[in-house]
Deep mutational scan, measured.
Amino acid sequence: TYTWNTKEEAKQAFKELLKEKRVPSNASWEQAMKMIINDPRYSALAKLSEKKQAFNAYKVQTE
């Protein structure tokens, strides 16, 4: 089980997950979700809006 003390740690864990699963920077949210949804870190960020925000930040960083 994973635990995160801060929102920032949770966001980092979520981005690490995207990186580890090699989600391409041109992937849509739907494509990315299919690649990461079974990992416990997918739940790091509770709100869908937070997940999408972190995903978009990840995409910008990896382009």
Score class of each variant (00 low, 15 high):
Glu30Met: 10
Lys15Gly: 15
Ala46Arg: 12
Ser25Glu: 07
Asn5Glu: 15
Lys51Met: 07
Val60Ser: 11
Ala32Gly: 05
Lys52Asp: 03
Lys15Trp: 15
Lys47Phe: 09
Ile37Val: 10
Phe55Gly: 01
Gln12Asp: 11
Tyr58Ala: 02
Pro24Asn: 04
Glu50Lys: 04
Gln12Cys: 13
Thr1Lys: 15
Ile36Ala: 02
Glu50Asp: 09
Tyr58Trp: 10
Lys15Pro: 01
Gln31Arg: 09
Val23Arg: 01
Ala27His: 06
Leu48Lys: 11
Glu30Lys: 14
Ser43Met: 14
Glu9Phe: 03
Thr1Arg: 13
Lys34Tyr: 11
Lys19Pro: 00
Leu18Trp: 01
Arg22Met: 13
Phe55Thr: 03
Gln53Lys: 14
Gln61Tyr: 10
Asn38Gly: 14
Ala32Val: 07
Gln61Asp: 13
Asn56Ser: 09
Ala57Leu: 12
Ala57Asp: 14
Phe55Asp: 02
Glu30Trp: 09
Asn56Thr: 10
Thr6Tyr: 04
Gln12Leu: 12
Arg22Ser: 09
Tyr58Thr: 02
Gln61Lys: 08
Ser43Ala: 13
Ser43Val: 08
Lys15Ala: 15
Trp4Pro: 09
Arg22Gln: 12
Thr6His: 04
Leu45Tyr: 03
Thr62Ala: 13
Phe14Cys: 02
Lys21Ala: 08
Ala32Thr: 06
Thr62Ile: 12
Arg22Asn: 11
Leu18Arg: 00
Val60Asn: 14
Trp4Tyr: 12
Ala54Cys: 10
Phe55Val: 03
Ala27Val: 09
Val60Asp: 07
Thr62Gly: 11
Asn38Arg: 09
Thr62Met: 14
Lys59Met: 06
Ala32Arg: 01
Ser49Gln: 08
Tyr2Ser: 13
Gln53Phe: 07
Trp4His: 06
Ile37Lys: 12
Ile36Trp: 01
Glu16Tyr: 05
Tyr58Pro: 02
Asn26Tyr: 10
Ser28Ile: 07
Leu18Met: 06
Glu9Cys: 07
Met35Gln: 06
Trp4Lys: 07
Asn38Gln: 09
Ser49Ala: 10
Tyr2Asn: 15
Glu63Phe: 06
Asn56Gln: 13
Glu8Cys: 12
Asn5Arg: 07
Leu45Gly: 00
Ser43Asp: 11
Lys34Ser: 13
Leu18Ser: 00
Ala46Leu: 08
Ala10Met: 07
Ile36Asp: 00
Ala46Glu: 14
Trp4Asn: 06
Glu30Val: 09
Lys21Pro: 01
Tyr58Asn: 03
Glu9Gln: 06
Gln61His: 08
Lys11Cys: 15
Lys51Gln: 04
Arg41Phe: 01
Lys59Thr: 07
Tyr58Asp: 02
Gln53Leu: 10
Met33Phe: 05
Tyr42Thr: 02
Gln31Cys: 12
Tyr2Met: 15
Lys59Ala: 08
Gln61Val: 10
Lys11Arg: 13
Pro24Ser: 06
Asp39Val: 00
Gln61Pro: 05
Ser49Met: 06
Ala27Ser: 09
Leu45Pro: 02
Gln53Asn: 09
Lys34Arg: 14
